[in-house]
Every structure is written in C-alpha cells, then in structure tokens.
Amino acid sequence: MDAFQAIADPSRREILRLLSRDTMTINALADNFDMSRPAVSKHIKALDSAGLISIQNIGKERYCILNQEGFDELQEWIDYFDTFWKSKLKKLEMLLNEKAGK
C-alpha cells in the first residue's frame, strides 16, 4: 500500500491525526474508535506498511509513532527527476554530437 492509498481511509486519517499530537500505544489508539481492536490493528499495520508510522516496543507496550520519512515521498520524486533530467540531457548532447559528426 502506498501513502496515497493509506490516507484515503477516514479511520487511518484519524489515527494519523491522533499521532500528530503525541505518540500513543496501540491500546490507547483503539480506545478512540468504536471498531474492534483487531480492526484498529489492521489499520495500524496498513499505515506501518505505507511507511507513515512506525511501531516500537517499549517495555510491554507497543507504541505508534508518526514517521516523517513516510511523508517525504515528494522529495524522493524531486530527487528522482533531478537525476532523470541529468541523464536525459547527457543523452541529448551525445545525440546532437553524433549527428554533427556525420
């Protein structure tokens, strides 16, 4: 699941909103929802797999933490295009020089 799919669901957005205030245990998060605990766990797993949160075991509790790196997808995209254009322009240069040489 990517970040877009992950935040398309209202319950998952609510989880992110709660975690934006503070780190919370899975149990504490579940208390905020009417749905079953396994259902909340499923959403948490989805957010975890999308990289938007991470789960850490501290003592006996499992804590959910908002993961900023998951929100950096856009920066990755920009970095990708930066490299993309550099290689494409190099290709254009080679192409033009090849033609000039003929």
């Binding site: 920009i78 930066d82 254009w85 550099k86 322009l89 254009l92 033009l96 020089n97 000039a100």
Partner: peptide
C-alpha cells in the same frame, strides 16, 4: 530542479530536438 547545459549546436537545432 534547475539544469544548465551547453550545446555546440544552434538554438534552432536544439529547438527541433
């Protein structure tokens, strides 16, 4: 993203490409 590239060819040729 900003890239500056120098070509030996004229602007007309680069424009075509």
């Amino acid at each position: 993203i900003v890239h500056r590239w120098q070509f030996r060819q004229s602007p007309e040729i680069v424009w075509e490409h």
